[in-house]
C-alpha cells in the first residue's frame, strides 16, 4: 500500500515539475514586451468597459493614453477628474481639471405637451419607429419614447417616465459616457456641463420647423423667435434653423432667457424658487 502511495506521489510531482518547466520556457519564448505603464493605467481605470471614452474597453483606452503620453482629448467619463488625476503622475504630467458633465434630454414633448395623434404598435425600438413615421405626436424631431437610450445605458442611469413618455436622466448615476447620445436616432440627447448643484439651463427642444408647424404638434416647442438671444448678455444663445441653442460654456445661469421664452421651451433645472414672482410649475420631471 505504502509503495503505491509513494509511486503516486513521485509520478504526480514529476508531471507537475515537467509541466512547470514547459510552461516556463514557453512563457519565455512567447513573451510580449509591453509598456508597464499600460498595466498601471489600466489598474487605475474603473474597468467598466463602457466605451464612453471612444475606445473598445478600458485596456484599449489605457494603451491609447500611454501611446499619446498626455491626456489632451482623452477623457474617462466614468472616473472623471479623480481618475485622470491619478493617471497623470504615471505619465509624468499634471492633469487639468475638467468640469463634470451629464446627459441632457432636449425634448419636453410629454403626453400633455404634445398629445398623441396616432398610436404606435410594433417593435419597441426608436430606430425602427424613426424610419417608419414622424412619431405619435407628429413632431418629426421629438422623442419617440421607445427607450433605445435606456437600452444603451450601462449604468442604469436613464429610464422612461411612464407619466410623460420621456426619458429621465439620473443626476447621480449618469457618467456622461455618451452611449445614449449615439443610440438616439434623433440626436435629442446632448452631453452638457453638470454645473454646481446640478443647475442647468437648456433649450429643451430640437425642432427645426418654423414656428407654426412646430407649435401645432407641441405646446413647448422652440419656435425660433429669437427673444432669448436678444435678452442674453453673454452671447451664449444662437439661433440656427428656427432653433435656439444655449452654449453651456458661455452660459452663466442668469435665467433671463427662461423668463423671456414665450413657449417655455427653455428649462431651468434645480434652481431655488424665485423671489418676486412664483415661477410656473415646470412640466419636465427631474430627479431632484
Amino acid at each position: 500500500m505504502n509503495q503505491v502511495l509513494i509511486y503516486a506521489i513521485i509520478a504526480i510531482s514529476s508531471i507537475g515539475a515537467l509541466s512547470a518547466l514547459i510552461l516556463f520556457f514557453v512563457a519565455q519564448k512567447f513573451k510580449v514586451i509591453e509598456d508597464p505603464k499600460i498595466d498601471e493605467v489600466a489598474d487605475i481605470l474603473p474597468g467598466a468597459n463602457c466605451g464612453g471614452c471612444g475606445y473598445a474597453g478600458c485596456r484599449n483606452f489605457a494603451e491609447a493614453i500611454v501611446k499619446a503620453g498626455n491626456l489632451d482629448n482623452l477623457n474617462c467619463p466614468v472616473g472623471g477628474n479623480t481618475v485622470l488625476k491619478d493617471i497623470a503622475p504615471v505619465l509624468g504630467i499634471i492633469a487639468t481639471e475638467r468640469s463634470p458633465q451629464i446627459a441632457v434630454v432636449r425634448c419636453s414633448g410629454s403626453y400633455t405637451n404634445a398629445p398623441k395623434k396616432v398610436e404606435y404598435d410594433g417593435a419597441s425600438t426608436c430606430t425602427f419607429a424613426n424610419n417608419l413615421f414622424a412619431g405619435e405626436s407628429g413632431c418629426p424631431f421629438g422623442c419617440l419614447g421607445l427607450g433605445d437610450c435606456v437600452f444603451s445605458c450601462k449604468f442604469d442611469a436613464i429610464y422612461i417616465d411612464e407619466a410623460t413618455g420621456l426619458p429621465v436622466v439620473s443626476n447621480e448615476k449618469c457618467v456622461a459616457c455618451g452611449a445614449c447620445v449615439k443610440a438616439c436616432p434623433r440626436k435629442i440627447i446632448e452631453i452638457r456641463n453638470k454645473n454646481k448643484k446640478d443647475r442647468r439651463i437648456f433649450v429643451s427642444c430640437i425642432n427645426q420647423e418654423k414656428g407654426a408647424p412646430a407649435k401645432k404638434n407641441c405646446e413647448v416647442a422652440c419656435i425660433g423667435c429669437g427673444k432669448c438671444m436678444k435678452v442674453c448678455t453673454f452671447e451664449a444663445i444662437s439661433i440656427d434653423k428656427n432653433l435656439a441653442y444655449i452654449d453651456f460654456e458661455k452660459c452663466t445661469l442668469c435665467r433671463k432667457c427662461v423668463d423671456e421664452c414665450p413657449t417655455n421651451a427653455i428649462i431651468e433645472l434645480n434652481f431655488p424658487p424665485r423671489k418676486e414672482k412664483a415661477k410656473k410649475e415646470e412640466t419636465v420631471n427631474t430627479e431632484l
Binding site: 398610436e119 404598435d121 410594433g122 425602427f128 417608419l132
Partner: peptide, 8 residues
C-alpha cells in the same frame, strides 16, 4: 379613436 401606426 386614434389611428394605429405600425410597420407592415
Amino acid at each position: 379613436n386614434l389611428l394605429t401606426v405600425s410597420g407592415s
